[in-house]
């Protein structure tokens, strides 16, 4: 009996979770990186919270973006190197769906903890508690978009030796609108202004990426596997 698409997705998710449990250090590392990078800014700029408060939204967002990029570098590489990806490509199942399932699981494991960690880092940089929901909400929508854009880049560069700098060069320009809307939303919230606009735009970008991204991922992956 052939399995249905939902079963296939569950199988991919289950496999990713099991691998994450056996390799939990790789899941925690981006989170630690996020905290360390955020710590750099008070050291580099000023210990005064009133000064830090102005740049806090940008700092948290840039740190989250870099942490996401760092974790995506190894999203597909192990599977391509050990031949699992070839088997996926030849499984007769839609590769776009498999890669999307893998990316979403990856976001649950690395993006979501980051979203939950961000308000604490924001507070440490002087952001008021009232912006927590906007900070977490914008990061939740934004990091999911970053994961999909980053996964396209990771699929394009997976066959390239030392592709991590190349990945950053390809993906960061594409991610700039996400940074603009995300950081601005938090900034507006700290000044007590309406944030529905940028949050809606972030959600729109996420939907666009969800709809088109998987096809770009699978096309890129097939090129990389030749």
């Amino acid at each position: 009996m052939e399995p249905g698409l939902l079963q296939i997705v569950m199988l991919v998710v289950a496999r990713e979770l099991r691998l994450a449990v056996r390799h939990w250090d790789q899941v925690v590392q981006p989170l630690i990186f996020f905290v360390v990078v955020t710590t750099l800014f008070p050291l580099a700029i000023s210990p005064s919270l009133s000064e830090l408060r102005n740049i806090a939204p940008g700092v948290v967002w840039v740190a989250a973006m870099l942490a996401s990029l760092l974790s995506l570098e190894s999203l597909f590489r192990p599977d391509v190197e050990d031949g699992t990806m070839e088997q996926w490509a030849l499984s007769g199942q839609p590769l776009a769906l498999l890669l999307l399932a893998k990316t979403v699981t990856h976001w649950l494991l690395t993006g979501l903890p980051l979203v939950m960690m961000a308000p604490w880092m924001g507070t440490a940089l002087g952001l008021p508690v009232s912006v927590w929901p906007v900070l977490a909400g914008s990061l939740a929508l934004g990091t999911a978009t970053l994961s999909i854009l980053g996964a396209i880049g990771a699929a394009l560069t997976v066959a390239v030796r030392r592709g991590s700098v190349l990945l950053a060069l390809l993906v960061l320009p594409l991610e700039m609108p996400v940074l603009i809307f995300g950081a601005r939303a938090v900034d507006l919230a700290t000044h007590g202004e309406a944030v529905a606009g940028p949050l809606n735009l972030l959600a729109a970008m996420l939907l666009l990426c969800l709809a088109l991204g998987p096809f770009a991922m699978s096309a890129a992956m097939r090129v990389s596997m030749e």
Binding site: E2, L11, E81, D82, T84, Q87, S91
Partner: peptide, 24 residues
């Protein structure tokens, strides 16, 4: 292929369950 497409962290049974499970 040349490479076995096995995950080092998974047992033989787990490897087979996840790879064969994609097909039937």
């Amino acid at each position: 292929g040349h490479i076995n497409a096995l995950k080092a962290e998974l047992t033989a049974l787990e490897n087979l369950r996840y790879s064969v499970g994609m097909r039937r």
